[in-house]
């Protein structure tokens, strides 16, 4: 299990990011795709706690940063998803939290992640980012993430629980 668990985690991240970049671009709304990596991280944070959520967020974010056709300065999604994982872990109400709480957690995390990514781009004066385009993208991203939450997050939570059924010790 020592070897298999990280392998499955890696596989999950690979598949999630591929589906997000490769398939959901065909289902984009005004160019915005749902942040599946974020949903994976939030589900992990709810099941496993903020520390795990943060670390998984870092790696999943790094994958989003580096997977083509991304060309932004690397580390920005990593920062955004790590913070989102931490946030979701802090806000969680335990494994039995009601669905409404999960949706609210996703909404807050999505808003935080997209904002952190955009803000870091503004600070680093990346091309194409301004307040107007950020405000245009934020609500669509938020709604799309929330809309797809019932399809993704319960499944992801189940997988995380299956992956490590032992109770979280920290």
């Amino acid at each position: 299990m020592i070897v298999i668990r990280p392998l499955i985690t890696l596989l999950l991240v690979l598949v999630t990011v591929t589906v997000q970049v490769g398939l959901f671009t065909k289902l984009s709304i005004a160019g915005v795709v749902p942040d599946l990596a974020l949903l994976l991280v939030v589900a992990a944070a709810i099941v496993r706690g903020p520390a795990y959520g943060t670390v998984l967020g870092l790696f999943a974010g790094l994958a989003v940063d580096l997977a083509p056709p991304a060309d932004g300065i690397a580390g920005r999604w990593a920062l955004a998803l790590a913070l989102a994982g931490w946030l979701a872990g802090q806000a969680r109400g335990g494994a039995r939290q009601p669905a409404v709480a999960t949706v609210a957690t996703v909404a807050v995390s999505s808003l935080a992640a997209t904002s952190v990514y955009a803000l870091s781009g503004l600070v680093l004066s990346e091309p194409g980012i301004d307040v107007a385009s950020t405000l245009e993208v934020l609500p669509i991203a938020l709604l799309y993430d929330v809309a797809i939450t019932p399809l993704v997050v319960p499944l992801a939570m189940l997988v995380w629980r299956w992956l490590d059924p032992t109770p979280v010790r920290w």
Binding site: Q20, V21, G22, F24, T25, S28, A30, G31, V32, V33, D35, P68, P69, A70, D71, G72, T114, Y117, A118, G121, E126, P127, G128, I129, S133, T134, V137, I140, A141
Partner: peptide
């Protein structure tokens, strides 16, 4: 694959 709008690129 197409870069998402969230990436602003």
């Amino acid at each position: 694959a197409i870069g998402p709008a969230q990436a602003f690129r």
